[in-house]
Amino acid sequence: LTVHVGNVTYHFDNPEQAEEWAKRMAKKYQGQIHVKDGQFRIE
């Protein structure tokens, strides 16, 4: 699973971990989480 934050990409084996990280990053950067094809993108 991949989480994109700006132009930085993080890889996770565990979906719960990826989702948790995406939520934390979205809160930190006050962005929206977009989920597409098993990838999380924070914008």
Rank of each mutant, 00 (worst) to 15 (best):
Q32L: 08
W21V: 02
V5F: 12
K36E: 14
P15F: 15
N7H: 11
G31V: 12
W21N: 01
V5Q: 01
V3E: 00
Y29E: 04
V8W: 12
K28F: 10
Q17E: 14
Y10D: 00
E20Y: 09
D37K: 02
K27W: 07
K23E: 11
N14S: 12
Q30Y: 06
V5C: 15
Q30D: 10
H4A: 10
R41P: 05
N7S: 11
E43M: 05
R24A: 14
Q39H: 13
N14T: 14
G31Q: 06
E16R: 12
A26D: 02
H34M: 11
T9Q: 07
F40E: 05
R41C: 15
E19V: 13
E16Y: 12
E20K: 12
H34Y: 13
Q17P: 01
G6A: 09
G6R: 04
H4M: 13
Q32M: 08
K28S: 03
T2G: 04
E43C: 15
G6D: 09
F12V: 00
E43L: 07
E16T: 10
R41N: 12
P15Q: 10
P15I: 12
E43I: 13
R41I: 15
K28I: 09
A22Q: 02
M25N: 03
L1V: 14
V8Y: 12
V3C: 06
Q17W: 09
Q39W: 04
E20H: 07
V5L: 10
Q39V: 12
H4I: 14
Q30N: 15
H34R: 08
W21Y: 11
W21T: 01
K36R: 07
K27V: 12
Q17K: 12
Q39L: 03
N7Q: 09
F40Y: 14
Q17V: 11
K23V: 09
N14Y: 08
V35K: 05
A26E: 05
N7V: 08
N14V: 08
G31H: 05
D37V: 01
E16M: 12
V5D: 02
Q32V: 15
V35C: 13
D37R: 00
G31E: 05
K36I: 15
I42R: 01
R24W: 13
F12C: 07
Q39P: 03
L1A: 15
H11G: 02
R41Q: 11
E19A: 12
K36Y: 12
A26V: 06
A22F: 05
Y29V: 08
I42P: 05
M25A: 05
V3N: 00
F12T: 00
K23M: 09
W21E: 02
V3A: 02
T9W: 06
